[in-house]
């Protein structure tokens, strides 16, 4: 690590980390509220998870074990790069096992294995404002949050039903946190929304470009918005995972050839590997593994 001697622990300087920690503490104190913070330039482009990296860098300590996932996978570019970056600048242990990690930074998924007390999950958020596409003025959306004027959020869901016959929003599905703030859970599939409800883990959200941090403390009510006659429901899949035969998990569609061949596999790679190690076998486990 000698060539990195000029970097502070976890890349950010101590003053910045204190500033971010203050924002995180405020976010935890007001679940779902978007706390503005002085987002820093990071050595990666906006949209690659600069918010999540700053949150992770501010809370990580030498004893932490880090896991980074991108769309559920530990081995995609974004996940590999961020994991390598934090490992390099903080010299912490990294893992791909959900159960072993103390901090999980994620883009677009919550792991299938239930998170435990003591774990922290850090979401990378592109657009923290759930009302953004309905009301472009930031001054107005802040006022709407302050005054709990959330009728507009239902206008979006109404539009979905009017156009598609059902609520067609499948990701970044708005939730209400502890009966107060409406929050964008980041572009996770709505399949993961129920996992946020009363989760034992601390959930932190960082939006680097938009300079916002928000949080859901452990054991907090997180309710997906819906209509009485069109209740919230998650996606279901016809078949189990082709590799580990898991059901009730979120599956990715993988195109196998140009003749329409495809398979559905767990999006959470760690979950799939763990199940296969336990001896579960899906219908394509032999040929595709």
């Amino acid at each position: 690590m000698s060539e990195l001697a000029s970097y502070n622990f976890a890349y950010l300087d101590e003053q910045t980390k204190r500033m971010i920690r203050r924002a995180i503490l405020k976010g935890i104190a007001i679940p779902g509220y978007q706390v503005p913070f002085a987002s820093r330039e990071m050595p990666m482009p906006y949209g690659w998870g600069t918010g999540g990296v700053q949150v992770t860098a501010s809370i990580i300590g030498p004893d932490d074990v880090l896991k980074v996932i991108d769309q559920g996978a530990d081995d995609t570019t974004n996940a590999v790069s961020i994991r390598a970056f934090i490992k390099k600048v903080a010299n912490v242990a990294v893992t791909t096992k959900t159960a072993e990690a103390t901090i999980i930074q994620t883009r677009h998924r919550i792991p299938e294995a239930e998170l435990q007390a003591g774990q922290t999950i850090v979401f990378q958020v592109p657009i923290p404002e759930p009302l953004r596409f309905l009301e472009p003025r930031e001054t107005e959306t802040r006022k709407m949050h302050a005054l709990e004027e959330y009728g507009l959020m239902h206008v979006k869901l109404y539009e979905d039903i009017a156009r598609h016959g059902r609520i067609a929003t499948t990701y970044a599905y708005p939730v209400r946190v502890e009966g107060r703030y409406v929050m964008d859970p980041s572009p996770t599939p709505k399949f993961d929304n129920p996992k946020m409800h009363m989760s034992a883990a601390l959930q932190l959200f960082g939006a680097g470009r938009e300079k916002r941090i928000y949080a859901v403390p452990p054991y907090t009510k997180v309710v997906s918005l819906d209509f009485e006659d069109h209740p919230f429901e998650v996606q279901t899949f016809d078949k189990p995972c082709a590799l580990c035969s898991a059901e009730q998990v979120y599956l990715d569609e993988v195109v196998l050839d140009d003749r329409g061949g495809r398979m559905f596999v767990c999006s959470d790679t760690d979950h799939c590997e763990t199940r296969r190690a336990e001896g579960h076998r899906g219908e394509m486990a032999g040929e595709a593994a």
Binding site: G151, L152, V155, K156, Y158, E159, I161, A162, F227, D229
Partner: peptide, 26 residues
Amino acid sequence: RMTVSAGANVGERLMAIGDRHYGKIR
């Protein structure tokens, strides 16, 4: 709201005061 349907324009106030039944709003 020029980018949402006529029905949602009329229904917005109802939703804002807590109406949560799609069929009734419509």
